[in-house]
Structure formats: C-alpha cells, structure tokens
Design a protein around this nucleic acid. Sequence first.
DNA 1: TAGCGGGGAGAACGTTCGGTCTGAAACGCT
DNA 2: AGCGTTTCAGACCGAACGTTCTCCCCGCTA
Lengths: 201, 201
Amino acid sequence: MTRGATETRPSEARQRLLSTATQIFYADGIHSVGVDRIIADAKVTRATFYRHFPSKDDLVVTYLQEVHQMERAAFTAAIAAHSTAADSLLAIAEAIAANIRTAGFRGCAFLNAAAEFPDVNHPVHQQIIAHRQWFLDTLTTLMAQVAEDSSDAAARHFVMLRDGAMAAGCLFDPALVVDTFLRGVEGLVRIHGQRESASAA
Amino acid sequence: MTRGATETRPSEARQRLLSTATQIFYADGIHSVGVDRIIADAKVTRATFYRHFPSKDDLVVTYLQEVHQMERAAFTAAIAAHSTAADSLLAIAEAIAANIRTAGFRGCAFLNAAAEFPDVNHPVHQQIIAHRQWFLDTLTTLMAQVAEDSSDAAARHFVMLRDGAMAAGCLFDPALVVDTFLRGVEGLVRIHGQRESASAA
DNA sequence: TAGCGGGGAGAACGTTCGGTCTGAAACGCT
DNA sequence: AGCGTTTCAGACCGAACGTTCTCCCCGCTA
C-alpha cells in the first residue's frame, strides 16, 4: 500500500467517482440518481466529491466527455483496421451492432441525456450537440471516399439509422434491431458505392 | 359563468391538469418537473391533483396515454384518407415530418420517457413498449399490402428511420432531418414495392 | 521534529420533493 | 332546504435533493 506516490496525482478517488457515475448515469438516468448514491457506490464522501467536481452538472458533463472519448477510440480503431472507407463504415456499423447486443445496453448515452436536458443553452446539451457533430463529420469524411457527390446525405442517412437502432435497441428485441440496422447500412453503402462507380464510368 | 352544467362531468380541473402536464412533461422532461409546478400552471391545488391522480407516476402514465391517443387518431386519419397502402405509408411519413417541423418539437414523447424510466417493470416503461408495439403492428399491416413477403423487415426499417428522425429532429437542423427521413421512406416503399411486383410477375 | 497543505470523513445546511390532512366555500341534484 | 361532491387554501410530513461546513489524518518539506 505504500507504493502509491506518483500515480496518486490524477486522484484515485476522482477516477473512482467518474467510473461509478458513468455506470450509474448510463444505467439509471441522470436526474433520478442523486449525489448520495454515486458517492456511496464510489465509497467516497461528499466533501471529496465536491473537491473534484464543482457541481453535479459538472460531473454529468465529464461523464459525457468520458463516453465520447471511449466511442472516439473505438471508431478510430475500427477505421484504422481497414484499408478502404467502405470497409471502415461497415466496421463502425458492426461496432455499433456489438454495442447494442451487449447485456445491459441502455441506448445512446447522448440521446438519453438529451431527453433529460432539453435546454439548448445548458452545458450538457451543448456537449451532446458537439458529440453528434463530431460523429456526423467522421461519417461524412468516410462517405466522401465512397460516394463523393452524395456524402452529406449518405452520412445523415447512416446517422439516422444509428440513432433509430440505438433508441430501439433496449425497447425491442436487440437481435432484430441489429439485423435491420446492418441491412440498412449495407444497402446504404452499396447503393452509394454503385452510384459513385456509375458516375465515374 | 353560469352556463357550465353538463360539461363539468369529466372534471374540468382534471382536464386542465392533464393538458398542462402534457405540455410541461413533453417540453421539459418528467423527473425534472415537480408536482408543484404542474398544479401551479394548471391553477389547481394539491388536494385537487391527488383527488384525480393517485400519484405522480399515474399522471405520467395518463400523459403517455394521451399522446398515444393523439398519434393514433392522426395515423388513422392519414390511412383513411388514402386508397392504397403505399400512399398511406407516405402520408404517415409526411405526418411525422410535419411533426418534426413543428416549432417546439422536442422529439418522441415515448423515447424521451424511456430515457427517464429504464426499469422494464415500471408502468411507464410498459406503456412505452405497448405504444411501440401498436406502431410496429400498424406499419406491418400496411407494409404487407405493399410487399407481402418482406413486410416485417420493411416495417422495422420504417420504425428505425422514424426513431432516428424523431431523436435527431431537435438536435440537428429539422429541415435536413426531415429531408433524409422522407428520402429514406420513399426509397423503402419503392424498393419493397418493386420486389413485390417482380416476384408477382 | 515541527509544520504545512491537500484529501478524506461525516455532520449539517436550507430547499424541494412527492404525498397527506383539515376545513371551509361553491356547486348540482332530489 | 338539504345533501354530496368538487374545489380551494394552505399547513404539514418525512425523505431526499444539491451543497457547504468543520475536523482530522497523512505524507510532504525544512
């Protein structure tokens, strides 16, 4: 126990707090869980919590940033593992599908948060908008390599399928949702790829 | 003021309470608005509220039933106004699009509620499931008249596009969301219609 | 060894939550 | 007139909310 010296700097308690909050907020929602439960599960006292986070809202923002980083990492890895943009898009779709199939899947953390924070000026809402913009931009860039002329519409179509799949994934049979989603994405990539090769010919 | 005689029977206060709750819950979420605000906006006292609704949860369930009835009425009208199933499907899509374009659009009341009530056994959650099942069944019936062999998959695809459009409608430019949605539905109906006529030939 | 300071512990703050209770006006009905 | 229901008005409850407070321990440097 006396080894801890340099690794204490990012604060072990803070990390415990954040990972606990991430689990609970995602599983049970945000407004319906209080600070009490989070600090109890993280085995931390109130004062410690408020030393690391100015308010509960700040914790929520940090929670969404955490999820954003994880998704970003997963998608970057999926893109890096494939040589063509079409393969990358299908890999991203497969990553989303795998997420939906996960036990304890509770939908998109950002869409769920948006339902609880309608105020557009609220920091949490802006975090959601920023995440979605990043996601759309990433897809648009990839789509541009598959179908240059219709990349915007194709990327929006992809996002729409994803949003629907993420929303329904915990309200319907996940297997059927994933099936519908993957078929939709495959059709999307195929059609736009065909259109591109046709216009290039 | 002495004209009121027979229309008081379904309780004017109760109706005022319900319509107020419908507006507020949809606009601002459920957990973040208290009973105090609803009774204040409805100009009703606490005792009156608890005379008509055993608890806040009951009001939430009734709120969702109210929205369900409105959607049901709108879709039934859209279906009745067209002779072919394909036209009915497009009319339903247009009704959804019109909803998204509405000022003050805040997404799907049921998807938003699902984000706040993750517990599957909760009456509110079951109300959501029931509504979605009705919606899917309605679409499946219509799709069966367009593409008999693939009606299930086509209906699920339609629902997925709708869910995505409803979720994104208040997070992106509604015009672009509606555009993407309608293109998707048109493609869906066209493709399944073609497949049907091809297999029939 | 003395002293400093950040992090942890836990009591306590005032407010708001959902929900109950009393008591008295205002109404429709027979 | 008399009855029953509905509504109003508001005090009240215990619990939970987000937040702040003081105290103390522990590892650091001088």
